[in-house]
Design a protein around this nucleic acid. Structure first.
Lengths: 236, 236
DNA sequence: ATTAGTTCTAGTCAGTTTGACTATAACTAA
DNA sequence: TTAGTTATAGTCAAACTGACTAGAACTAAT
């Protein structure tokens, strides 16, 4: 068996172990400006290597679950979250990612809606961080998060992913705030609005968001699936 | 050890085995029209499961090599090819991909230049197939190839990948033929030309392609790297 | 040598998209 | 009632796209 009692020769012969990790994104209001910003939950390492450092939630792949199932189970167990979007990011398999053993990590990235994110477990060993202020993470998790951010920005430009960071109903200004938070630049409200209105997947509702300080904006709804992954493509 | 002598209980306890496979694309002239078309080399299964069927080249991940190294070694060993482009495609980890054991396959896709592809080994158990006429492959390799084709078409639209299917020097018409072969539709020569001329990564040379039947076209050269993968991004 | 045929290459033109900007509508708070 | 702010619609020029025309440069046939 591949337990900790295995000697060096046995570890050499063993296949690399397989782990699943997830980069989870959610929007939370910034402390200062109150505008939405990207946050990521991390877990503290409670054993070596990198004991005490923060790391992406993850764990080994068990025998009876698919990769995607393992990712969502892990998500649920470590953070209590149910993602609204989950996609494979990349398989990281460099030789020296972990100092103690060879590990291949299949990393997923997930988006979580704000209502869900507000309920998330937070504890001594689970904490949310601003995506742009993470500090030094365990293993190679810093470049992994960078790559996940790059993918998120790319997917955003393409289309259908922003709505998974919002609730079912949203205003066009809220969508713009998502884009501004993720892309980290301001967008012209009128032009942005024109583009969204020309995409058929965004449906006008009859309702308006009340309770604001100014003219109440109309609420919209997103219709249409994201799905580009092979694992998602066939789901109707 | 996890050999064929392991019993069921041992296989259950064992971690899923890890394999690397590669979808290799190269251009070859079609038999009929002579125009370039996409071809893929496959290897014949010489043992169960799926004995006798054609499959993607691949093999187990050995302990001392990175994922990308494993992919290129495998490429070289099974087909004798050195790719001009190699990128991770996806990690496939469904529970029932292989009837005999749980296998997680990290699949790469590669592009090979025509000079290289012409030298490729072909034998009883290695043969090239037109990408659009593969028949039934072993395992879940048909949807994997479909997904690789989808990625290739996408990357083509974005930019820098077409030149890795060509030699160092090429005419703009040759680039157009690559696009036409991969996207499977005709493109207006004048408009296509205008677009390419506006991209700074395509450099005019002073030379012309001689020996054709008509006006000799100017030769161009591609300058600039593809790299979007985390494994490729930092390579300068 | 001349001509026909083909590809290479440059250009036009209308329709569409994009970015910067202006203006009015609709609400809250003072 | 008014000032302030956001929501929303619209204008305009620049850039881009797809369809098309036309001359340049070569080969092959007459």
């Amino acid at each position: 068996m591949y337990t900790s009692s295995a000697n060096v020769a046995e570890r050499q012969a063993a296949p690399p172990s397989l782990a699943i990790s997830t980069v989870i994104f959610a929007l939370r209001p910034s402390e200062k400006s109150g505008r939405p910003t990207l946050w990521i939950p991390l877990v503290r390492r409670i054993r070596e290597p990198f004991k005490g450092l923060w790391a992406l939630p993850g764990g080994p792949l068990t025998h009876a679950e698919s990769l995607q199932d393992a990712a969502s189970r892990n998500l649920r167990e470590t953070t209590g979250l149910a993602p609204s979007y989950l996609e494979q990011l990349y398989a990281f398999g460099g030789l020296h990612r972990s100092p103690t053993q060879r590990v291949v990590s299949i990393v997923y990235w997930a988006l979580v809606q704000p209502t869900e994110a507000a309920l998330a477990d937070e504890s001594e060993n689970v904490r949310w961080f601003r995506a742009d202020r993470l500090g030094d993470l365990a293993f190679d998790h810093n470049p992994i998060v960078d790559y996940a951010l790059w993918r998120l920005r790319n997917k955003l430009a393409y289309g259908s992913v922003a709505y998974h960071l919002l609730g079912e109903y949203f205003t066009l200004a809220q969508v713009r705030e998502v884009y501004e938070a993720v892309l980290d630049r301001e967008l012209d409200p009128a032009n942005f609005r024109r583009q969204l209105k020309s995409t058929p997947e965004i449906e006008e509702t009859g309702d308006y968001l009340q309770g604001g300080k100014h003219r109440p904006p109309r609420l919209y709804r997103f219709t249409g699936r994201p799905g580009l992954d092979p694992d998602n493509r066939s789901t109707p």
